[in-house]
Nucleic acid binder design. Structure first.
Length: 875
RNA sequence: GCCGAGGUGGCGGAAUGGUAGACGCUCAGGACUUAAAAUCCUGUGUUCGAUAAUCGGACGUGUGGGUUCGAGUCCCACCCUCGGCACCA
């Protein structure tokens, strides 16, 4: 090839072929003697014909780090695969009117070609596809394991239903339209008002409905405390940690029991601020609570008004309640409750601002220290008491909303709590109330159990068998005494008649018509040849579960599978296994490989999975840890949340018509150009906008690079050149470690500009430059390494350049002149002038400006200020 | 309302308390060319002044204060933007 033309398509194809043939990115899983590095990138789900430029942006970010670690002498494992099961793929198949199987045959080929054409260093020998029976038999095995451990159960519950996807959704898959990035639509075609607060399906943007159905749940709440606690010990992007913490939503408080005056009854209220309880002046219960627990107690003269209010409130939809805003309404029940702390008689009210579904559904009103309580008290002329003095020191009466002190402070008017700070007072009162038997500590979480049933076709069938005969006799897989710890206290235990299927996989049959029914049952329910079976215990006719599991169950363990792909453990036949006595110990993992490679060293992915995949994967890992199957709780000690590549100010999406296809750019400019360009646009955790003009410039830079490498070089390196080169190494290394690829590239460009201005460029400088470029532009670097610099095969087996610290030590310095003990003047000198402190000091004094300034002043000291201040006395 | 993150040229974005605007895009001028494209060179925060030319001054990081020899960076108050949570007791 001509040395003056950089032909990207020839070079890139050539090296991609060589890499594949020689398998240089294939990892020796039993590697010894080298430190291992598991570099994981969130696998894509094939819900379109191919990847868009956003994937190129994020996957390149992950690949660069992997290549960097490789050059830092780590044995790097960088796998890739496909999250091919699930609603997203199925919906796309429906759209193109094909079966998911057939659609995937085509799209996976495209995805693979695209990923390869970007030049990522993936180990394709450890690839996996979640819809492959070899994979999903283990997903089913996982479900069975969880079931046996009491972590999977079935219960009837009010659940989210997407009328468009015709399936239920987990709480995490329901969000506001803004979060989903979709305009809300209603299944019946009615328009959604812009002021309406609606929740939509994460996938399709349809407004969700509520339905009561019997479904399978995973008991993630059992791990709420550990999921929360461990967050403090893992190195994750801050915003993701915060989101998870909020989603778990831990609240510590106490349930206080207040006797109802003159009745043989009491009301339980949950509060997180028992330290303010001396300031309680009323009780409010939700309409739900009133209807359920209070109606019989209410005096006749109040009953009509209360009933009317309750009925009215309960007939309103959630949306109506929200629309009415914060105006407080309510009705007095005629009843009083006693606050046993001070024997205060608190009127009991009913109001719809109290939620039936949170806490106990009843609240104790402390109007001085809760804004909502204050609004309510003002509305109905209920007394307000101050029991906390906040940081502003105000002790006056609380008469307006802005005087309500919700923060921490010092307790007053609270008898034995007086003078204590909020923290101490809380501890004291908690102990006191428990000791008196008036209350009980209670911790609540926002996190709910994970609903995994899906009434769809494209997923792993939930491997459970239902035997009606056994159910009638109250039999189940668990004997009465063998109910696991986790489930023993649960009211939700309704699994009589259910047995786990161990003859795995329960194959998903090929169906020609697989569309969701919308009846609350999945398409498999129409296929007796699938669901008809025999009870594994009594042998009578039994039925299989016809729902499939959530796609997030597939992806909750895939990172554990990658390193084990190809092992005999992962490949073993579970159908043969069950005949063996050790069937309980069957698992897809090789212990040596697990300990060599896991947990994942760096997980690179999108922040949108904060409460979805990332939470589920942590939960599953903890469960597997408790079952003794793996030896760590946290699968991802380090997670980096990348940003998103946007186009014309918006997220790329088909409906907006702003999808950038990376193929066009790879063909026109080359993968290296696209890699370098997307990385240069901005910080990796930002939201850079893709523009065509910029990429032209980047392509020109690569051409100039190519020319630079092809110019004559000398063997000697000048001192100035050496300083520059070493500064660049230092900067680029630091930036890559912090995922600041854009500034790393800028430094490389600066070095190139510098080298171009030199009359002679040394070979050493070019070698360093080539190495610095290698993670970003792997093909170009490889070509230069071998063809131009004549080095051994593959730059990626070479080592990252070392910094010569001696050379870059001399940085610019400041000379500060001290008069009468205070620094009064500072001069700045370039590094090469400031090698000797005395020389510099003399020079400072000699400076005409300083000289003039110094006139008539007594110089005591000059101070040498490079990075830190070093004092020395001027003689 | 509460909790985060942030506000720097025409644009994307750089700056361990130490020459603000690296690097790139855009734009302008020049060279080459019959011409255009490509390429290369020069300039490009605002403003004032000056020279034959090299040049010099002032102001500039949302606003107003403060600390410091020195502040985009640290502290206080305010304004604005973007995320997350939201009648969760």
């Amino acid at each position: 090839m001509s040395k003056y033309n950089y032909n990207h398509s020839v070079v890139e194809k050539k090296w991609q072929k060589i890499w594949e043939r020689k398998g240089i990115y294939n990892t020796d899983m039993k590697a010894r003697g080298k430190q291992t590095f598991y570099n994981l990138f969130m696998f894509p789900y094939p819900s379109a014909e191919g990847l868009h430029a956003g994937h190129a942006f994020s996957s390149t970010g992950s690949d660069i780090f992997g290549r960097f670690m490789r050059m830092n002498e780590k044995e790097v494992f960088q796998p890739i695969g496909y999250d091919s099961f699930g609603i997203h793929s199925e919906n796309y198949a429906i759209k193109v009117n094909e079966t998911p199987q057939k659609m995937l045959l085509r799209t996976l080929k495209t995805y693979t070609n695209q990923l390869k054409s970007m030049g990522h260093g993936y180990d394709w020998t450890h690839s996996l596809t979640t819809s492959d029976p070899d994979y999903y038999k283990w997903t089913q095995w996982l479900f069975v394991k969880l079931f046996k451990a009491g972590l999977a159960y079935r219960k009837e519950a009010e659940v989210n239903w997407c009328p468009s996807c015709k399936t239920v959704l987990a709480d995490e898959q329901v969000m506001t339209p803004a979060q989903a990035g979709k305009d809300p639509i209603r299944a019946d075609g009615k328009p959604v008002g812009s002021d309406e607060d609606v929740m939509v399906c994460e996938r399709c943007g349809t407004v969700v409905e509520r339905k009561i159905l019997k479904q399978w749940f995973l008991k993630i709440t059992h791990y709420a405390e550990r999921l929360l606690k461990n967050l403090d010990n893992i190195n994750w992007s801050e915003r993701v940690v915060k989101t998870q913490k909020e989603w778990i939503g831990k609240k510590e408080g106490i349930i206080i029991t207040y006797p109802v005056d003159g009745k043989n009854a009491s009301i339980d209220c949950f509060t997180t601020r028992p330290d303010t309880n001396f300031g309680a002046t009323f009780i409010v219960v939700s309409p739900e609570y009133a209807r359920k627990n209070l109606v019989n107690l209410i005096p006749p003269k109040n009953i009509q008004k209360v009933t009317k209010y309750v009925n009215n409130a309960l007939n309103k939809t959630e949306q109506q309640r929200k629309k009415e805003g914060r105006v407080k309404t309510g009705v007095f029940t005629g009843l009083y409750a006693i606050n046993r702390l001070n024997n205060y008689k608190m009127p009991i009210w009913v109001s719809d601002f109290v939620l039936g579904g949170f806490g106990t559904g009843a609240v104790v009103g402390v109007p001085g220290h809760d804004k909502r309580d204050f609004e309510f008290a003002k509305e109905f002329n209920i007394p307000v008491k101050r029991v906390v003095v906040g940081s502003n020191g105000d002790t006056s009466e609380i008469t307006t909303l802005d005087k309500v002190e919700e923060g921490e402070g010092i307790a007053i008017n609270s008898e034995f709590l007086n003078g204590m700070n909020t923290h101490k007072a809380t501890e004291k009162i908690l102990d006191y109330l428990e000791k008196q038997g008036w209350g009980k500590r209670k911790t609540t979480y926002h996190l709910r159990d994970w609903l995994i049933s899906r009434q769809r076709y494209w997923g792993p069938p939930i491997p459970m068998i239902y035997c009606e005969k056994c159910a009638r006799q109250g039999k189940s897989w668990f004997t009465k005494n063998s109910l696991p710890e986790n489930s023993r206290n649960s009211d939700d235990w309704q699994s009589a008649g259910w047995y786990p299927e161990e003859n795995l996989p329960v194959l998903l049959p090929k169906l020609k018509y697989y569309l969701p029914q919308g009846t609350g049952k999945g398409p498999l329910a129409d296929h007796p040849e699938f669901y008809k079976t025999r009870c594994p215990v009594c042998g009578s006719v039994a039925k299989r579960e016809t729902d499939v599991s959530d796609t997030f169950l597939d992806s909750s363990w895939y990172f554990l599978a990658y390193p084990n792909v190809g092992t005999k453990e992962y490949g073993q036949d579970l159908r043969a296994q069950i005949k063996q006595t050790n069937k309980e110990s069957a698992k897809p993992f090789n212990d040596e490989i697990l300990s060599n490679w896991l947990p994942v060293d760096l997980y690179f992915g999108g922040a949108e999975h904060a409460v979805l995949h990332l939470m589920y994967a942590r939960f599953i890992s903890m469960a597997l840890f408790d079952l003794g199957i793996i030896s760590f709780e946290e699968p991802f000690p380090r997670f980096f949340a990348h940003g998103l590549l946007i186009k014309d100010g918006a997220k790329m999406s088909k409906s907006r018509g702003n999808v950038v296809n990376p193929d066009d750019y790879i063909q026109k400019y080359g993968a290296d150009t696209l890699r370098l360009y997307t990385m240069f646009l901005g910080p990796m955790d930002g939201y850079p906008d893709f523009r065509d003009t910029g990429i032209e410039g980047m392509r020109k830079f690569l051409e100039r690079l190519w020319l630079l490498f092809n110019t004559k070089y000398s063997l000697k390196t000048s001192k100035k050149e050496s300083i520059k080169v070493n500064q660049t190494i230092k900067k680029v290394t630091k930036d890559i470690k912090k995922f600041r690829y854009n500034t790393a590239i800028a430094s490389i460009m600066e070095l190139v500009n510098f080298l171009k201005e030199q009359k002679r460029i040394s070979q050493d400088s070019l070698i360093v430059l080539c190495k610095l470029l290698a993670p970003f532009t792997p093909h170009l670097a490889e070509e230069v390494w071998v063809e131009v610099l004549g080095k051994d095969f593959s730059i990626h087996k070479s080592t990252w350049p070392k910094i010569n610290t001696k050379i870059i030590k001399n940085q610019p310095v400041n000379i500060a002149i001290q008069v009468n003990g205070k620094v009064r003047k500072v001069l700045r000198f370039a590094h090469h002038e400031a090698l000797d402190q005395d020389v510099v000091a003399k020079k400072a004094i000699a400076d005409p400006k300083i000289n003039q300034w110094l006139k008539g002043k007594k110089v005591v000291k000059t101070i040498f200020v490079p990075q830190k201040i070093i004092n020395f006395v001027l003689k």
